[in-house]
Amino acid sequence: MNISLQPIVLRWARERAGLDAAALAKKLSTTEEKVLQWEQDGTLTYKRAEKLAEKTHTPFGYLFLEEPPLEQLPISDFRTVGSEEPKRPSPELLDVLFDAMSKQAWYRDYLIEMGEPRLDYIGSIGLEDAPAAVGERIRHHFGFDSATRAEASDWKAALNLMFEQCEAHGILVTRTGMAKSNTHRPLLVKEFRGFALSDPYAPLIFINSKDSHAAQMFTLVHELVHLWLGLSGVSNLVSTYAPSARVEQFCNQVAAEVLVPLDALRAQLALAQEDDDPIRRLVRHFKVSSLVILRRLRDIEELDAATFRKLYKDEEDRFAAIQAKQKAKGGGGNYYASKHVQVGRRFAQALIGSALEGRTPYREAYSLLGVRKTETFNNFARQLHFNV
């Protein structure tokens, strides 16, 4: 059965998914000419329209609109760099954002029902505060000292330690590199590195795990500063320090103070200068990216402007090359270990416990956890030490 849809909406669905006509034709097992024809006359079969919605990750009902909907992020978009406007959010970004908001809403209601208090540090600072003083407050509150990170075996261990410290202080931390657990829907680092959902009961930080561990560490603290400001938003730290907007600049400055305090940097610099590669030694000690170290060395005037710009550009190019090589690398590993990272251990324990006690319907728990089978749910529960 043929149906008539608006050609502009069909073209919007394709472009929204980042596909050209040939790529969409391949996904639909048809020809490019057919796709272009639909986008001219709007006529196609009902089943083909369903398939088109599925392959472009478009809500099916949207295809019947008279004109494309204006899709906007429901939280502030801090991805603008200079005068460049952020691009339209991808279906992947929208999906992980709405999924995180659903998790946060459930967890907030759960905490209020359990009589948990508000977190007093959410929204406790302002842009007029001194970044160094705020950085010291955050380090003290969460125990983010550089000495502990230096003792970690590698970047991943140091990062996991920081995630645990955030969750221990009431923050939901979720990490994934794909939308809806679909390996064919990777999250692009160039689009966004993370976002923060501020709330006095259930603050949430999302980290794009496609990024390097060192970069994820900076993103984590950057988003943490957003929470202390009480500001939700999506971030993409294109050059770590590049964003010119005041909020992002402030969050970057505080994050640098948290991860690489200037006193600690000066103390380590004397030792690092005895090494053949001082910057790499500092990177290993502080467990941050070389871009952060370069910026901090510039802050204490150990690098002049020209040298800083050259080294910074060289490191950006090196990171871009590494990411290009890793782009096609698949996932793997233990499913259940990955699952508690994706949804957050704190959230998973609360939700599973609530479902087992009969306070949350299993259907809702399955949906929020992203599982379909009772067996999978029970196995996940056992991994978190529930008796089922």
Rank of each mutant, 00 (worst) to 15 (best):
R284A: 11
D77S: 12
R118Y: 12
A179E: 06
S198R: 02
P59L: 05
L28A: 04
P89G: 08
A53L: 04
H140Y: 06
N182M: 00
S102G: 06
Q349M: 14
D314Y: 10
T56V: 00
A25K: 11
S90N: 08
N378S: 08
E50Q: 15
C166M: 09
V134L: 06
I205V: 15
R14G: 05
F308R: 04
Q40D: 14
R79C: 03
N182C: 10
A100F: 03
G126L: 03
T240H: 15
Q326A: 14
S367G: 05
W106E: 04
E151G: 00
Q165I: 00
L265T: 05
I205W: 03
A150F: 11
I322G: 00
F218A: 07
A214F: 08
Y241R: 15
F347R: 01
D95P: 00
T58L: 06
A105S: 14
R118F: 12
H222S: 01
E164L: 07
E116Q: 15
G42A: 05
A17M: 09
L262S: 11
I112V: 11
N334H: 15
F60W: 13
K339P: 07
L294I: 06
Q253D: 10
F206K: 00
F60E: 08
Y121Q: 06
K47L: 13
G358L: 11
P200E: 03
G233S: 11
R346D: 10
T174K: 05
T80F: 00
N252I: 07
F142P: 08
F218L: 15
A202R: 02
Y201S: 03
R14F: 05
N379G: 04
L5C: 06
V234R: 05
H141S: 06
P74A: 11
V254A: 01
G123R: 13
S354K: 07
L70E: 13
A17G: 09
D99Y: 11
T240Q: 12
S90Q: 10
F78T: 02
K210D: 10
A214Y: 09
H385V: 01
N252W: 01
L356G: 04
T148P: 01
F380C: 03
F144M: 03
G194E: 03
G126H: 12
K327I: 09
Y62G: 00
N252D: 09
M1H: 13
A105R: 15
K27R: 15
A320P: 05
N208I: 00
I207A: 01
L220G: 01
H213C: 13
R137V: 06
L161G: 06
E191Q: 14
T376F: 12
F60M: 10
Q342F: 10
V288F: 10
S146Y: 12
V343E: 04
K103I: 10
G61R: 11
L65F: 14
S239A: 14
K190W: 13
D276W: 05
E92P: 01
L224G: 02
I205Y: 05
M178W: 09
I125F: 07
P89Y: 08
S367W: 13
L384S: 08
H140L: 11
R11I: 00
R149W: 04
A130C: 11
E191M: 10
R281C: 00
R79Y: 11
A21T: 15
H222D: 07
L65D: 06
R345W: 03
Q383T: 15
